[in-house]
Structures are given as structure tokens and as C-alpha cells.
Amino acid sequence: MSKETLEHLNTNTLIGFTDKRGHAWHYREEHQGGESNHYPGAVPVADILRRLFHWEAEPWLVQFKHPGTGEIIEDPSRQVFIRPDTKSALGVFKDGYKGHQYRPWLVGNVQTMLDDSELGVGSAGLLKGGAVAWVQVEVPDTFVISEAGVEYRPNLLAATSFDGSLATTYKRTVTNIVCDNTMAAGLAETGHQIKVKHSRNSLGRISEARQALDLVIAAASDFEAEVQELIRTDVSPKEWSKFVDAWAPLPEADAHKGTITRAETKREQITQLWKADPRVSPWSGTGWGVVQAVNTWAHHSQGVRGTTRAERNMLRAVNGEVDNLDAGTIKLLTAVLDRPIGQQRLYAIAA
């Protein structure tokens, strides 16, 4: 990892509860020298305000300048949000857009959620130059599914944006400890979230974020029930091969060589995870192993373009792609097996 990327992670990402789950690995390295971005317990709210959210996005007027004559035309129907410390444009919107500042919508609301609860901040950060931000709260202790040997941490992910990519969202997710991956709490489902649009009437809905605590409470039991069902689902070597064929089909022989090479590489990578990688192989031969293989491949093997792996993975968590990934894997596996996964409930959800 380059020095520049390391510096970016230290100044834009704060990681907590390292005494419980270890230092974040593979795509989040601990800062060497200077102020660490790792905390043995919960990330202090004061540090989030000081290190990440020490600025507020400012709405500026939008003007157009003719490249030849230099004539300037102002557009009163639009506004551009500027990050004042870097003078970078985060997003351009119509005048009805209401920006949700990070301090009240993420930190303030999260502090309300933390009142009279055992939750603490497990991570917080900025993405896309500050255009997207998140704060994630977690329970203090790691959960263990003893019969499956799966350790996980249920959490609530609060995120919003100034580039139009994301409504303010409070959603439940799960951190899988063995691979430091984000997974959907309802593996075979999407949803389980509260969204607030960036409109003039949105400020009156801040109190609704308190309801999101119910999502964390339900996350652990839902995740554990689905993992147990997947563990009870046998996947034979023949069925695994059929799944790989459906997940990464080989192109026709006359396809472009690069297309064939990419497909073969994808198949080889996930097969290696299935057979030998400690993040996946302990569960080979089960439906959980299939979900774990695809999720781990997407986090740590899939190619990255135009950003860092750390930022790409976190963006997937906040925009719902992780939910779609896990639900899609279960739906595909159900079709390949042509039988219910675990109990009938999962099959009905995935169908």
C-alpha cells in the first residue's frame, strides 16, 4: 500500500474496538507514526468531530462562464455544495435540495441513539473527498455462532452524502470478523433501513433515526438464524462446480481473449478461496461457505478501478451493494441446488 493511500486512510477513517476484533487488515492498515486511526475501544465522538467533521459543506451560487467572451450567467435554480477547507465541489443540485450536514445527521443522531444503550462508535470516515460520510455504531462484544465457528459484530450504519448518491440512511449490517467484511444482516434480503431524502421537509424527521436502534437489536438474531440455515445446507463438489458455472460462466470459444482470461481468473480465484483460504475453506461444502466465498472475493479479489479498495468496499456498504451481493448469492445458489436452503423461509425470500 502506498504512503499516499496510508495517509488518506489515517486522515479519513477512524477504526474502533480493535481489542475485540483486532486491527483492521488487508485494506485498512494501522497508521505508522503520528496519530493512530485505531482505537482499542469505541471511537470517541470528540475525535470524529475534530478529525473528520470539522467542516460544514457550504451552498454556493452556480455560474456559467463563456470560454470565448468571458460572459458570466448566474443560474438561481441551482446550487453547488463546496467543502470549505479544500474548496472542492461536492455536488450540484436544484435549489430545493437540502444538504444534511454530517455533524447533526450522523454524529448528533448517533449520540441520541447511544443514550441509554451499550452501543459505541466502531468506525467513521469520509469517502470521495468528503462527498460521502458514515458513522457506524456497534455492540461492545463480539457475537459467536458456536456450532458454525462464526464470529460477527452487528451494527448500525449511518451514512449520507453531498453528491446526490445517497439519501441519509440508517441501516443494519454485520461485520464478519474472520475476514473483516461487511455483510447484510438479513443475508437473503435487502432493506432493513430508514432513509431520509434531502428535501426541505426532511429536518422534521431527525427523531425517526431513534427507531433505527430496533434494526441493531434484530440484526444479531436474524443473521445467526440465516447462517445456521446455510450451514445446514450441503453443497457437494458437483453442486459447487455448477454454482461457479452459473456465477462466472465461461464465454464462447470465439470470444475475445481478454474476456476469456478474465472469466478464467475469476473462477480460479473463487475456487482457491473455496479450497484453501482460511476465510472460506472451513465452511466449504455448505451454503454458508458459498456466501462467504463470494463476499470475500468481492471484498478482496475483485478488481478496483478509479479508487482504493478500502473506499470501494465502504461505498458498497453504505449504498446497499453489499445487501444485493449477499441476497443475489443466495438466490443463485437456491436456483443451482433446485431445493430449499435450510428451512423453507430462506428459499421463499430468495425466490
Score class of each variant (00 low, 15 high):
residue 203 L to K: 01
residue 216 V to P: 00
residue 212 A to N: 03
residue 24 A to S: 14
residue 136 Q to M: 10
residue 329 T to F: 05
residue 190 T to M: 04
residue 336 V to L: 10
residue 201 N to D: 10
residue 245 D to N: 15
residue 25 W to C: 08
residue 265 T to M: 12
residue 249 P to C: 14
residue 241 S to L: 09
residue 192 H to T: 05
residue 262 R to A: 15
residue 349 I to A: 13
residue 203 L to G: 12
residue 305 R to M: 08
residue 79 Q to D: 04
residue 48 I to G: 01
residue 17 F to K: 00
residue 169 T to V: 06
residue 106 L to H: 12
residue 346 L to Y: 09
residue 256 H to N: 13
residue 42 A to F: 12
residue 104 P to Y: 06
residue 228 Q to W: 06
residue 340 P to T: 11
residue 338 D to G: 05
residue 296 T to H: 03
residue 331 K to V: 05
residue 183 M to P: 01
residue 139 V to L: 10
residue 283 W to Q: 02
residue 242 K to G: 07
residue 130 G to C: 06
residue 142 T to A: 13
residue 278 P to E: 11
residue 326 D to T: 15
residue 293 A to T: 01
residue 16 G to W: 04
residue 216 V to R: 03
residue 121 V to D: 11
residue 8 H to W: 15
residue 286 T to Q: 08
residue 268 E to Q: 11
residue 231 I to S: 06
residue 341 I to R: 03
residue 289 G to T: 05
residue 180 D to N: 15
residue 32 Q to H: 04
residue 156 L to G: 11
residue 197 K to T: 10
residue 189 E to T: 09
residue 302 Q to C: 05
residue 125 G to N: 04
residue 331 K to F: 02
residue 14 L to V: 05
residue 84 P to T: 10
residue 271 T to Q: 15
residue 129 G to Y: 08
residue 207 S to N: 11
residue 116 D to V: 09
residue 231 I to L: 14
residue 87 K to V: 09
residue 53 F to T: 00
residue 241 S to P: 08
residue 87 K to A: 11
residue 171 K to S: 13
residue 330 I to R: 07
residue 339 R to E: 06
residue 175 T to L: 06
residue 306 G to E: 03
residue 173 T to D: 06
residue 54 H to I: 00
residue 203 L to C: 00
residue 250 L to V: 14
residue 130 G to L: 05
residue 260 I to E: 09
residue 78 R to F: 09
residue 273 L to H: 04
residue 169 T to P: 00
residue 321 E to W: 04
residue 350 A to Q: 03
residue 312 R to L: 02
residue 269 Q to V: 03
residue 295 N to F: 01
residue 302 Q to T: 07
residue 61 L to A: 10
residue 256 H to L: 14
residue 2 S to K: 07
residue 242 K to H: 12
residue 142 T to M: 13
residue 177 I to F: 07
residue 302 Q to G: 05
residue 228 Q to M: 10
residue 162 F to N: 01
residue 92 V to H: 01
residue 232 R to Q: 08
residue 75 D to I: 04
residue 160 T to E: 05
residue 4 E to G: 04
residue 324 N to I: 14
residue 229 E to Q: 14
residue 135 V to K: 02
residue 201 N to R: 09
residue 151 E to S: 07
residue 193 Q to F: 03
residue 248 A to L: 13
residue 268 E to N: 14
residue 58 E to N: 06
residue 92 V to M: 04
residue 316 R to I: 00
residue 210 R to W: 06
residue 275 K to G: 02
residue 274 W to H: 09
residue 84 P to W: 03
residue 283 W to H: 12
residue 275 K to Y: 10
residue 251 P to G: 10
residue 232 R to L: 11
residue 42 A to C: 09
residue 223 F to Q: 00
residue 301 S to T: 01
residue 152 Y to L: 04
residue 77 S to P: 00
residue 230 L to V: 13
residue 186 G to N: 02
residue 60 W to Y: 12
residue 23 H to D: 15
residue 205 R to L: 15
residue 272 Q to H: 10
residue 249 P to I: 05
residue 103 R to G: 00
residue 108 G to F: 08
residue 27 Y to A: 08
residue 327 A to R: 13
residue 165 S to W: 01
residue 233 T to L: 10
residue 85 D to Y: 01
residue 34 G to V: 06
residue 341 I to W: 06
residue 348 A to W: 11
